[in-house]
């Protein structure tokens, strides 16, 4: 016994070959269908925006690390693809008419200010892609919020659009006046004829990506499902219990993109199961409430608000430690 050498190490003691890198590559794969559909609908410009966005996100991270004195080789070894995901999500949440400098500036803000200054991957307070998008939205309102281009299947082949509806989406038509939507639910689901951001139009592709992530156990389906359901139900309540609003409200705008890919970010969502339910329900209430009252798309703002409340949720909802019994009220001290 005496000459046996024990290896001491701090926790975690159980190791899994799966690292942040693998998870982030999985997320990239899950985002791929929606990206491809975006390129099919919106043409080469969408592909260019996606590529520029990813490159600028990765470049921002490299430049920041080089300035802080890391060696180039170390950066390559430590690179975990989180900035790729940020870049992809950013490009997917902007319209195809956006000028090329917007993703460059937006990603530089998202990576350097939101992520790296707070300590890099896993230490950021709010989701970088969401915050970068809001930064770009506030900064370049004139070029980002107008001139929506309707998607067309033939765009990549140079054909004309099949459904020439431009401008107002279902959201800008306003939920306040519960009229019959100008687009059918199938149109909303497939994203045909609906103006919108590159990655959020084709809901089917987003749902495929979400199912892939759930199957690979990258995300748990709790948050997206509750978020989407609560948004739909609360919209129905606010529009005078008109259940015809249920499907259009959950199928329009960036709700599915936000619910599946942005609200489930590990760093910026609560740690406990109960906390996650509170988080998702509040997300849904905020999204539906703000949407109906403002008539604009607010998913990214709702996620940003809730990201800031997450530390509070984690503070008040604490899991019961193993073997711990709640002290009886009024018992002998």
């Amino acid at each position: 016994m005496a000459d046996r050498i024990f290896a001491y190490s701090s926790s975690p003691h159980v190791k899994n070959p799966r690292t942040t890198k693998h998870i982030m590559i999985d997320v990239c794969i899950a985002l791929a269908p929606a990206c491809i559909m975006g390129i099919v609908y919106f043409g080469y410009m969408a592909a260019l925006l996606l590529v520029v966005s990813v490159l600028s996100a990765v470049a921002s991270e490299f430049i920041y690390l080089l300035i802080t004195g890391k060696k180039f080789k170390q950066i390559i070894q430590g690179f975990d693809y989180t900035s790729c995901v940020t870049g992809l999500l950013f490009a997917m949440s902007i319209g195809v008419q956006t000028p090329i400098y917007v993703p460059i500036i937006g990603n530089a803000f998202a990576i350097i200010v939101v992520k790296m200054i707070f300590g890099g991957t896993g230490k950021n307070l709010v989701n970088p892609a969401v915050t970068g998008r809001i930064f770009a939205f506030i900064s370049f309102t004139s070029v980002m919020a107008s001139g929506w281009v309707a998607p067309s299947i033939g765009a990549i082949l140079g054909g004309s659009s099949i459904n020439p509806l431009t401008g107002a989406t279902v959201l800008t038509d306003g939920f306040a006046t519960p009229t019959v939507a100008s687009l059918s639910n199938l149109d909303l689901l497939l994203g045909t004829g609906l103006a919108g951001c590159i990655g959020e139009t084709c809901k089917i592709a987003l749902l495929i990506g979400g199912v892939y992530l759930v199957v690979r156990k990258v995300i748990s389906p709790t948050v997206p499902l509750i978020y989407i359901a609560v948004t739909g139900l609360f919209t129905v309540c606010l529009c005078g219990f008109d259940f015809a609003e249920f499907l259009p409200s959950i199928l329009s705008g960036g709700l599915i993109l936000g619910a599946v890919f942005m609200a489930t970010d590990y760093t910026t969502s609560p740690n406990t199961f109960v906390g996650n339910i509170v988080y998702a329900v509040m997300l849904g209430l905020i999204t539906a409430g703000l949407r109906v009252s403002s008539g604009k798309e607010v998913v990214s703002f709702a996620i940003l608000i809730m990201n800031l409340i997450v530390p509070l949720i984690d503070k008040f909802i604490i899991p019961r430690p193993f073997g711990y019994k709640k002290a009886k009220k009024g018992g002998a001290n």
């Binding site: 500036i105 930064f135 506030i138 900064s139 370049f140 309102t141």
Partner: peptide, 14 residues
Amino acid sequence: FQIGFFASSSGAFF
């Protein structure tokens, strides 16, 4: 060329 963020109050804090 304007970055509206810096003209807003959040830009002031930043």
